[in-house]
Design a protein around this nucleic acid. Structure first.
Length: 179
DNA sequence: GCTTTAGACGTAT
DNA sequence: ATACGTCTAAAGC
């Protein structure tokens, strides 16, 4: 099977570096906002080998434009990205990502609630799937918190998770989300 | 509150 | 088969 070329772009938004990986008009991975380009590239590196990945259609959006949108969403602006798609299947991970995509800005759900939506008790597997979220920000895994409303882990660190939630007006007291 | 412990289960190896 | 993980619930302090 012939593979199409995967292209990578980087750019900045308000002093932060972002990286994206795309194939034709499909975005397959994006980074968080990072302090250096290398770090941004590391974010996407592990997702560009496998082609059984979720993606969003770019529809002729230029990479610079997309990085701008990512930057804005990093800073709490409500950006409407295209729906997440997947060529293949109903695998658990993709179902998790789909479910998480439904969480609107300013709201949170728990790992448990996501699992229950999928008729599963695999709370940790939900975390696992989100740990491998190739499209952070676009798939808002920062809006998933623990059942006790503590923030839980995050690829960019829990401080970043907190910052992302705060910038979209989620109320946080100490280390817990108020909802 | 905070720590430990066992349990649950999809995924990668 | 085994080990790991953005977890949970219960028990003890």
């Amino acid at each position: 099977m012939k593979k199409n070329k995967i292209l990578i772009s980087t750019g900045t938004y308000r002093e932060l570096y972002f990286a994206i990986a795309y194939c034709e008009d499909k975005l397959i991975s994006c980074s968080l906002g990072r302090n250096d380009e290398k770090k941004a590239l590391e974010d996407i590196k592990k997702f560009i080998k496998n082609n059984e990945l979720p993606y969003v259609k770019l529809e002729s959006m230029k990479s610079s434009e997309l990085i701008n949108e990512l930057g804005k969403s990093y800073y709490g602006e409500n950006i409407d990205f295209n729906p997440v798609q997947h060529d293949n299947k109903n695998n658990f991970s993709f179902r998790v990502l789909k479910e998480v995509s439904k969480i609107p800005p300013g709201e949170v759900k728990t790992y448990k609630e996501i699992a229950e939506k999928l008729d599963s008790k695999a709370y940790r597997a939900v975390g696992n799937a989100l740990n491998k979220n190739p499209l952070p920000l676009i798939i808002p895994c920062h809006r998933v918190v623990r059942t006790d409303m503590s923030l839980g882990e995050f690829r960019g660190g829990s401080e970043m998770k907190k910052k992302l939630l705060k910038s979209e007006q989620v109320k946080i007291k100490g280390n817990k989300v108020i909802r």
